[in-house]
Amino acid sequence: MPDRAECEAVVRQLWPFIDGVVSETQREFIVDHLEQCEPCNSHFDFARAFLEAVHEARPHFHVGQGLNERVMAALAGAGYRA
């Protein structure tokens, strides 16, 4: 079981690791740690589930109908035909 100092160092890199912006050395270190440390692993799993849920909320951010119509009208004025 890794010690607390190592756990804290790993958790401090939670977002950079999940976003894939840590160095290869850091990545290997964190992967090794997570394989041995369930508490840290659960933090990372929760963060990944959160990001997945946010991404899946994408359909809720469709552009407003007014803007859509305005763009389509402008395109139509430029010769666009849907």
Binding site: A9, R12, V22, S23, E24, T25, Q26
Partner: peptide, 12 residues
């Protein structure tokens, strides 16, 4: 242990 902490921080 501190070397591992440092590795996590610097990545180099």
């Amino acid at each position: 242990t501190i070397a591992r902490v440092a590795t996590a921080l610097t990545g180099d």
